[in-house]
């Protein structure tokens, strides 16, 4: 009973719409559609293209990425930890090397630079994973029957159901007007 109930619940959840998907055959059409969607007040929509389309993020009205701040914070952490490390090791156990005073910071600038770069690279790498919620083994947009063409010749647009302006029939009509093909409502 309990098991069946959970199964039902799962099915119910699975039936929840993720959003409407359609595709275009040229980047120009996609760009135009994204601009129209943005102007119509949609916020939660996404585009999947076979190759990077320049200017698409402007057409979609995406906010600037948060990555620079993550990388800056990580780089600053790296710099500070390098200063702390070099100061600690050279003051806690002072060694006279070629007659230089203890904690000759000049010699440690390469260390500070390297740790800044290392931490920044970690920030960029793992920050990218975090922001993109990777690893992600499955995404609802894969349910569209023609989705494999997103790696070949189709330029997909997905309007997500969580968008406050989302309305299954109105959004579908808008996409149709924009010329999207094979408009399908995919589930979560």
């Amino acid at each position: 009973m309990d098991k069946a109930h959970r199964h039902e619940e799962l099915e119910e959840e699975a039936a929840k719409p993720f959003g409407l998907m359609g595709y275009f055959l040229t980047p120009g059409e996609l760009m135009h559609a994204c601009e129209k969607l943005k102007n119509a007040g949609y916020k939660d929509f996404d585009a999947q293209t076979p190759f990077p389309v320049h200017g698409l993020e402007k057409a979609m009205g995406l906010p600037p990425s948060k990555m620079p701040w993550i990388v800056l914070a990580c780089g600053a952490t790296g710099l500070l930890s390098a200063i702390a490390l070099t100061a600690f090791v050279s003051l806690d156990y002072p060694l006279v090397i070629s007659g230089k005073p203890a904690f000759s910071y000049q010699a440690y600038i390469p260390v500070m630079f390297e740790l800044t770069v290392l931490f920044s690279a970690f920030g960029a790498f793992f920050g990218m994973w975090g922001i993109n919620r990777l690893p992600m083994f499955y995404h609802p947009s894969m349910k569209h029957p023609s989705f494999p063409r997103a790696t070949d010749d189709a330029f997909f647009v997905t309007v997500e159901a969580k968008d406050p302006k989302y309305d299954a029939s109105k959004t579908r009509k808008l996409l149709e007007e924009l010329g999207a093909r094979e408009i399908v409502e995919v589930t979560e």
């Binding site: 070629s98 007659g99 000049q106 010699a107 600038i109 390469p110």
Partner: peptide, 11 residues
């Protein structure tokens, strides 16, 4: 920096 660094460290 590296012009300075190499000269400074060799002294």
């Amino acid at each position: 920096f590296f012009q300075f660094f190499l000269i400074w460290i060799v002294n």
